[in-house]
Structure formats: structure tokens, C-alpha cells
Design a protein around this nucleic acid. Sequence first.
DNA 1: TAGATTGTTAATCGATTAACAATC
DNA 2: TAGATTGTTAATCGATTAACAATC
Lengths: 204, 204
Amino acid sequence: MEKIPEASKRRLTLLAALLASFKEEKITSIQMQKMAGIDRSIIRKDISLIGFKGGVSNGYKADELLAAIREALKLPLPEQKRFCCIAGLGKLGAALMQCGIFDESPFKIVAGFDSRVNRTEVLSADFPLYPAAKMETVIPESKIEFAILAVEDDQARLMAERLATSGVKGIVNFTGQVLEVPAGVVVENVSPLLALNNICAKAN
Amino acid sequence: MEKIPEASKRRLTLLAALLASFKEEKITSIQMQKMAGIDRSIIRKDISLIGFKGGVSNGYKADELLAAIREALKLPLPEQKRFCCIAGLGKLGAALMQCGIFDESPFKIVAGFDSRVNRTEVLSADFPLYPAAKMETVIPESKIEFAILAVEDDQARLMAERLATSGVKGIVNFTGQVLEVPAGVVVENVSPLLALNNICAKAN
DNA sequence: TAGATTGTTAATCGATTAACAATC
DNA sequence: TAGATTGTTAATCGATTAACAATC
């Protein structure tokens, strides 16, 4: 299979999210265009890019298409747990670890870190909480691959660097800071502030 | 000024975030490449796209460049408050409204909504909390332009539709659902789950 | 000046789009 | 069959990249 462009990967990942909660058996590119806001030509091109040819004249079987996207993009299945940690246990970090958002997902939080001892001692979770000083040892030992970064802005860059040094492959960045990471480490910026600015820019 | 491509807008918005916390007087495209992970040719092209020509042979004045980007992209300044609301006051929504992330920003939360009466009555904030039924009247009355969507997944689509109907211009989507919105309403997907999947897809 | 970086051009590269034969 | 949608091609469109004269 040829290499899949970055833009196609993002669209396919979004389609996978759509399909995961889709209730009917079959789905057409027209329905997906309407639901995901992606042109149906692009959708069919993206599907063709991953080599999936299960479509027939009344659409794709939703579960087959979902499986094909997951396989092509190496998206984890719910039963293949991938270990994550949360760095920064302030209001937002604590909420992310407690709100149950990862419960049915392939991503499992197995550690929390904070540089303030009172946060790691006061909070409770069904996984261990550590002082930030333990990051470099715990992350490799616990086979943690991904990190949720929710520290205060003034610590963001330092912590991102330490997460990268500790071996995480990706960081979900909730801070308002732009992170500088080594090649090979992927950052997804999900700061609500950046998101709002992106909306302003797009809305013109 | 010609129209600015979507990809350029996103990069420039990221550069604006970078510049907002940049401490030195001058910055070069090489520094920005290193810090934001964007090729310097693209950075200079993007800057040229917005018609900014303040650069000299030792870089750009950071504050001038930031002002130019904000103006070209119509990004709000800290003193020009834009009103937002939070829909869904569970653990995550409550944390977002209490964590102070919007404090120094141009975005001001002026209302919270939840369909569960006990949430709007138990929680406290320095802005009013309403039952979801009030959305359609409060949003236009309070001149709310943007919404943070943090409801449970099973309510996500319905609430997004109601937010759009109520007149918001953009939705920051924290839910795992893909939202279907009318043309003209902008959605930024910041679900941690989607972000993790995007990281997996990108990391190959 | 010597060195470094900008601003811009032109070439390349890649992505989007439209169209339609093939298929069910 | 008639109608609808896929899969794919080719054309178009737009974005990225490299290069370099101009500038400080």
C-alpha cells in the first residue's frame, strides 16, 4: 500500500470515530459527507487509498469499513490496551482522570504525575499517582506510550521535554503553550484557547 | 489581501500562540521552525500571505508580527472579550469552567448549561448556570458566540444541533462524537480520545 | 564589510475535484 | 431493469519547496 497523506489519515480517523458509533449496517459516502462534513469524492478517494474495496452499489458495510480503517492506520482496538499517563493533576488533569472518558476505549491511564506533593497525596484514582520526579523511571517501567499534558502553562515546555525524554511517543497538549519536541514525538494540540482561536480564524 | 488558505490560517494561529508567550524582542523564521515544528520557508510564505513586511535581516519584531497575525486572521485581542458558554457540567465541563484557563484570554465564559437540575444547582461559578432548556433564549440574549461542548456522548449531537440553532458560530467539541452542524458553524474537535487516535495514525 | 535572514519567484509536488464506466 | 453508488482516472487546482537577489 502506498503511503497515506497526513490529511487523509486525519479524515479517516474522524470517519473511524463516526463509524464506531454508527448504528445501521450500511453507510454511503453521501451519508458520511453529511455527518462528517467531508466531500464524498474525498471520502471515496481516502477509502480507496487504504485499499478497501468492500463497497457495493448501496454503500459500505459500516463494521467492515471501520475494521479496514483501523487496520490501515494502526488504530488500536478497544481490547488492545495502550498505556497512557496524565501529567499535571490540577482541576483539569484531575477531571480528565476521573471523568471516565477512557473507560471503554483502548487507552488506559496507568499513572498520574504532579510536581506538587499535596496533589498526588490528596487525589485518589485507581492507578498510582507519583511526584513528577518519578516520571523518567515510571514511564518506561510501566510501558507508557502516550501522555496527556495538563500542567500549568509555565511548566508546559519543561514537562513536555521530560515526557519526550522518558520515551512517550505522543503528547495530547491541553496547555496553551506550543511545545518543542524531538522528531518522532507527535503532539496534538487540544487547548480550548487554541481551538477558539482556530475557530475565529476559520470563521473569518 | 488574497484569501488565506486554511492550512496557513492554522499555522499562523499556532505562531500567534507561540509569539504571545515569547519573551525576546526579535524572532527569526529559523527559531520559529524549531519551536513550532513548521518549515521556515512555509513560515515566511505564510507571513508574506498576510502582507506583513516588517522583517529585516535579523528577524521579525515579535510584537509587530503577533499584532499583524491577529489583525489578518481577526483573532481577538485580550481586551476584546468574546462571550462563550459551556454546555455540559459534568466533571470535565465543571473543571473547564473552574480551572481559570480563560482568565487572561479574550474568551469569557458567561453561562453554563446542563440538562440535570442538580448540576446547575449544586455547582457554583461567577456566571449563571441554566437548565439546558434555556439555551435557545440565553445564548442570543447574552450574545454568546462560542460554545464548549462537554456533555455525555449520547447527548452530543442533540446539544450541538441546539447550540447551532441558538446561533453560536463555533463549537469546541470535547465529546467523542462527530458533530453534524449547519454550514457556517465551525467545529474544532478536541476530544482526547480522537487526539490519541490521531497520534496513533500519525506515528504509524 | 561579512554574515545572516527576509521576501518572492518559479518549479515541483501533491491533493482535490469532477466525471463516468462498472457494479449491485 | 432502473436507480444508485462505488472505484478510479485524468484534469485541475493549490500548496510546498528551493533558490536567490535584496536588505540590514
